[in-house]
């Protein structure tokens, strides 16, 4: 497999609206209104701000469970995850599993690599259409 591009960097925040306001007002970024919202399955709500060919994803936990809530509890706000675009998500997952990495099943073009398989870095693989 070959990683193509940094799709986005995930940033955990306590309050999504506050963070978006800060990045818009102070840094001049604009929310992509076509994406983001609540993701019940992950216990989060998120929003994206494009910067060049990549995005900043702001993620607010909605409850006490899940990796985002755990990160917020332990570290507060900060950089949480790196999302990497690949050509073929199924092939990428198979490749990584073949190397012994722990990777979740792909869903809607996205798969999560266990931080334990990347020395502690949360990685997401994503296949764009």
């Amino acid at each position: 497999m070959k990683a193509k591009r940094i799709d986005h960097i995930g940033i955990v925040v306590k309050d999504l609206d506050t963070a978006l306001g800060t990045y818009a007002r102070n840094f001049g970024f604009t929310v992509d209104a076509a994406r983001g919202g609540s993701v019940a399955a992950l216990g989060i709500k998120n929003a994206f701000m494009p910067v060049g060919e990549s995005d900043l994803e702001f993620i607010q936990p909605l409850g006490e469970d899940g990796p985002v809530a755990q990160f917020a509890k332990e570290r507060g706000e900060g950089t949480f995850m790196l999302s990497i675009e690949v050509d073929d998500i199924d092939a990428a997952v198979e490749h990584l599993r073949g190397l012994g990495a722990r990777v979740g099943a792909p869903s809607n073009g996205v798969a999560f690599v266990s931080a334990k398989s990347a020395h502690g870095v949360n990685l997401q693989l994503i296949q764009r259409q």
């Binding site: 840094f27 001049g28 900043l56 990347a118 020395h119 870095v121």
Partner: peptide
């Protein structure tokens, strides 16, 4: 008015062994 950012130039991954992490 913003800061005139054009793109993310680089992302830093810090570790206790940069060579090993880069190799992984």
């Amino acid at each position: 008015m913003g800061i005139g950012a054009t793109h993310i130039d680089h992302i830093v991954i810090s570790s206790n062994n940069s060579g090993a992490v880069a190799q992984t």
